[in-house]
Amino acid sequence: MIRDNSDVILAIQDLTAEVDGSPILKGLTLEIKAGEVHAIMGPNGSGKSTLSKILAGHPAYTVTGGSVTFRGENLLELEPEARAKAGLFLAFQYPLEIPGVSNLDFLRVAYNAKRKHEGLEELDAFDFDELVQSKLGLLQMDASFLSRSVNEGFSGGEKKRNEILQMALLEPKLAILDEIDSGLDIDALKIVANGVNELTTPDNAVLAITHYQRLLNYITPDYVHVMEDGRILTTGGKELALELEARGYSWVREEEEAIAR
């Protein structure tokens, strides 16, 4: 929902970045305000997933220029865990499997790290169990997910639901969903999208990165950005996604080039 006077949550200005010496982001600018849902679309290799990892602080990427301000703070100075505690959440395209760590323990450690950061008392195992049980219904997850190792042997859909369960517990100010729709059948997609919608409030924001318009039938964006070659090529409303679906990405580039001439 677009509102003129809402707070800026994320402001990216002329961001450039590289991995192993090759430039991936080439001057990206983007602003996200509270209450807004943004979608970034673009062809493979345009830098969409890289952007999400850089925002979350993945050590493999080097920021070479520009700035990122998250809720008034210089995001790039923060360690990944500090970014998470400040309210940034990345739902991974490929959530990692961690054999030997129970999902419940993982969720509790993460939840309590946030509680501690906020100066609240950590929840004990009993109280946390009650809390997490209350969130399972949102994603139609069975309690048996909790006793299994983190993501180990989970199907694609189960992994994505587990990501949104983490989002439900951590209540981020900005949730970046990196291809949350990949590997999901239509039923799982509806569950995941519904979970995200339930968690969206006027105080937080969503940045959904996707290849396909399909996801945007369920998570309705206020803005659609088209990304190519490390930059945002054009920005429009949700109808832009439909046009991209019908005409592909190349016309956007041609149109931009025509304007430039």
């Binding site: 979350a56 602080g57 993945h58 050590p59 360690e79 990944p80 865990e81 970014r83 998470a84 505690k85 959440f89 990345l90 991974f92 959530p95 990692l96 961690i98 054999p99 030997g100 760590v101 323990d105 993982f106 450690v109 993460a110 790290a113 946030k114 950061h117 190792s149 983490q166 951590l170």
Partner: peptide
Amino acid sequence: DEVFYLQSRGISAEMARQLLTFA
């Protein structure tokens, strides 16, 4: 990547390494 995954959930790098080694 496993350490980063845990860090991205607000768990410190040190705690993440400990959890993974425990596991």
